[in-house]
């Protein structure tokens, strides 16, 4: 459900980038999601397919990188991948902060010239 609203926001951002860079065709949009992003990749992909068709990103490929939850311990600075949503530092049992995997990140946008290069 929220994937649709997120996708609309995402497409606005992609369009902004497209315009900033000379208005060329979007060929690929790459995003990153993790276990606490609140986003289901399949629903995201299908929402993108539906909504993008009405925009300048129609025909763009959506690449979804699924990452693990990466955390950093607030006490000892140890970084580790969370196992089974256990948020306690494996080294010192301290509380951690999430450094990756709890947001929907727009990673990159590929823009292609619409005119082929003449050789």
């Amino acid at each position: 459900m929220h994937e649709q609203s997120l996708v609309r926001t995402l497409l606005r951002q992609v369009e902004s980038i497209r315009q900033e860079h000379g208005g060329r065709r979007v060929t690929e949009t790459r995003v990153e999601v993790g276990p606490l992003s609140g986003v289901e990749p399949l629903l995201l992909a299908s929402a993108f397919e539906q909504s993008a068709s009405e925009t300048t990103a129609a025909d763009a490929t959506l690449v979804i990188d699924e990452v693990a939850l990466l955390a950093e311990c607030e006490a000892c600075r140890e970084q580790f991948e969370l196992q089974q949503f256990d948020f306690r530092c494996p080294a010192c049992r301290g509380n951690v902060r999430i450094v990756r995997g709890d947001t929907l990140q727009l990673i990159s946008v590929d823009l292609q010239d619409t005119e082929p290069i003449e050789r």
Partner: peptide, 12 residues
């Protein structure tokens, strides 16, 4: 044509 990758790395 040429492809340009614009890196963003930003929370949507």
């Amino acid at each position: 044509g040429l492809t340009q990758t614009v890196t963003v790395r930003r929370d949507v």
